[in-house]
Nucleic acid binder design. Structure first.
Lengths: 126, 126
DNA sequence: TCCTTACTGATAACAGGATATCATTATCGG
DNA sequence: CCGATAATGATATCCTGTTATCAGTAAGGA
């Protein structure tokens, strides 16, 4: 039987209110506002459950630990700030890139990551 | 003083002859053809040197350990085969993607990864 | 050729991210 | 309100990729 716990709700709330993918650590810190004693193990357990149920999805970027976001309908990409390392959603998509695939290769998907400075870090010295 | 060793030459040769980014493990196995006793520590040491001198560059893909390739001039991307996991070079580029960045963000680069099946894995059952 | 010392190989140690363990807590059907 | 048990928190453990250690080896200038 599946129970509704304060911990699970808190994790879900943090993911929902943040409109960018979060690391388990960020989720932990955010959810501890609601559930002070929350532990990192629980965050991982809840995330695992949300992934299995399709409620959340993992976001993997080059050279980075996985981040998590609530599952959205539709294909989208991400922007990583080189100053604060936060990852943001990007709604657009360059479109069909299969023309780039080498001859004889069969392409079925793509990932795009944009890099630069987010609105709050523009102008900040590196 | 810097010495030219058989180990260093072997690593360089493997990277040069393979036209795709290789994991340290793949480099080890390839270079052991030339230098049977080669150890993984030496592969990492040589790679570190090549990176510092700009001879090689690291290729990081989402959720993957770093791979290495000899430094090329020019911007390019990669294709990862979902069947054999090998990574291949892609010469094209979708072009300027700054229109995708959220308003107020300052974009200075991008990464694109294509997924699918490489020429040798097309038709292979998953 | 000899000698200095950079380099090597084996392996222990490390790093971090994620999972397993286990006694305790708290959810929720009855 | 109880009681069975799912879920939790603290922490040990795992895991994989990478680096440090150190005695032994070999590159290359003299």
């Amino acid at each position: 039987m599946q129970r509704n716990t304060r911990q699970k709700s808190a994790v879900r709330a943090v993911l929902t209110s943040s409109h960018r993918p979060l690391t388990p650590q960020e989720i932990l810190e955010g959810a501890q506002g609601d559930v002070p004693g929350l532990g990192i193990a629980t965050v991982y357990r809840v995330l695992k459950g949300l992934l299995e149920e399709g409620e959340a999805s993992a976001v993997e970027l080059p050279g980075q630990a996985a981040r998590y976001e609530m599952a959205h309908l539709g294909h989208h990409h991400h922007f990583q700030c080189r100053a604060c390392d936060k990852v943001f959603e990007v709604s657009g998509c360059p479109g069909d890139l299969s023309r780039l695939a080498p001859a004889g290769f069969q392409m079925d998907g793509h990932e795009v990551v944009l890099y630069g400075r987010c609105a709050s870090c523009v102008g900040t010295p590196s």
